[in-house]
Write a protein that binds this DNA or RNA. Structure first.
Lengths: 227, 227
DNA sequence: ATAGAGTATTGATTTATATCAATTGGATTA
DNA sequence: TAATCCAATTGATATAAATCAATACTCTAT
């Protein structure tokens, strides 16, 4: 992988497009580009917040790790996004973990430098805060889903999220194991299997290993909405 | 209630102390002071984001309302705080509801004017973002508690939160009904009664109506930590 | 090919927790 | 003081979903 300059990088997040040449060069001088392989942890929940993650390419999961070793999958990053979480402004710790699901290319940007640019370029700051808040709002939606719905609804939610927010297609190769899908939909891996089978028997979806086809989206939406 | 000028108001949030006289006067000219009584809704989830809430006095709950009428209590506001949620930067809708638990005094500030000040005074912006992110982080903690622990742990969590984060005392008059305490701890009101009784029988706490005394905090903490 | 390891599937059982039902208690009003 | 109403409590029952257990499948490495 050749090292592309930030200025010419077409993978960078939209917010960076508000930066001046000088600002971009400052970022450039204080970033490192790293490739993470499947399963490698990019951000570790609880550790000191030193860098902002500029996610460029690949697929990663945002998750929180409970004390009992139970994991909860909060979101999937599939396109360019600047990721840091509330610790940036709050306690300088990461509130969640970020783990690569497929080989992923990211840039790590020193958070002090990031804040320096944030402070001086309002257009950039506003764009970043929009992104930041969209993610915040997404967490709220997950919160609602996980606490208010029961298994069938949560599974419908998870599948529709994959189709609409990650792949923009009704057929896709799920980048998650059954275990991880369970962590996303808030249920055990066994329950995942049972519900997928039910959906398959009712011809709402088709499954073949990791391959999933959504056949009756309207019905799936109705399951999602039914409390 | 006489109308105090913002400049002389000793109830205002810390962030406002970073404003210049002119900025404070701008806010002053675009705010209304309102008193809400117990049960009155200050912010309605899903409605258009027009105003920031500067909470000054009283007690209120932040909650999300599920489609099935089920409510989930996410936090309690007991001291000055600027409240708006991610909609300020994102979709101009409130992500949660805010309802007074006791008579509460708040100021409503036009969100455009708020953003105008936010944009021009970086110290203010930074202070606000710190507050904003602390709340964000608190939601994460609740998320963790609600999804990773079971009833006893969640109840211990709820009681310790009241003692440490709301009242700063181990004895307090709970401002929530059993129903609401259930919405906070993620369980039915009947389960609330049963667990409070258990805790009482084990002499961890004492209860008498809304009055709650925490007797063995260390043991309660241990229940909280046990997965 | 074959062994081995991990993942997925399916069924049986258990458990946590909600719901339903009945009773009590406390506050408010007539 | 009685009547009314709503919240709280307690017990009995139902149910959603986890866990346990056994088997099947898939992939990798030898």
């Amino acid at each position: 992988m050749e090292d592309v300059k930030c200025n010419g990088c077409h993978l960078k997040c939209d917010s960076f497009k508000f930066l001046t040449k000088d600002e971009l060069e400052l970022i450039e001088a204080n970033r490192s580009t790293v490739v993470f392989r499947k399963g490698e942890k990019i951000i570790r929940q609880g550790s000191i917040f030193k860098e902002m993650v500029s996610f460029n390419q690949g697929l990663a999961k945002i998750h929180i790790e409970g004390t009992g070793g139970k994991d909860l999958l909060l979101g999937i990053i599939s396109s360019s996004e600047i990721i840091g979480g509330p610790g940036l402004f709050h306690d300088k710790r990461y509130s969640f973990s970020l783990t690569a699901l497929t080989t992923s290319r990211i840039c790590l940007i020193d958070s002090e430098i990031f804040m320096q640019v944030f402070k001086t370029n309002y257009l950039f700051a506003e764009s970043f805060l929009r992104e930041f808040s969209r993610r915040y709002n997404d967490f709220f939606q997950r919160f609602l889903s996980l606490t208010q719905k029961q298994m069938h609804g949560r599974m419908a939610d998870a599948l529709l999220f994959m189709a609409d927010s990650v792949f923009n297609a009704d057929s896709f190769d799920l980048p998650l194991s059954r275990q991880e899908l369970g962590e996303f939909a808030g249920m055990s891996k066994e329950s995942v299997c049972r519900i997928l089978k039910e959906f398959k028997d009712e011809k709402l979806i088709n499954t073949n290993g990791q391959k999933i086809d959504i056949l009756k989206k309207d019905l799936l939406c109705r399951i999602l909405e039914a409390i």
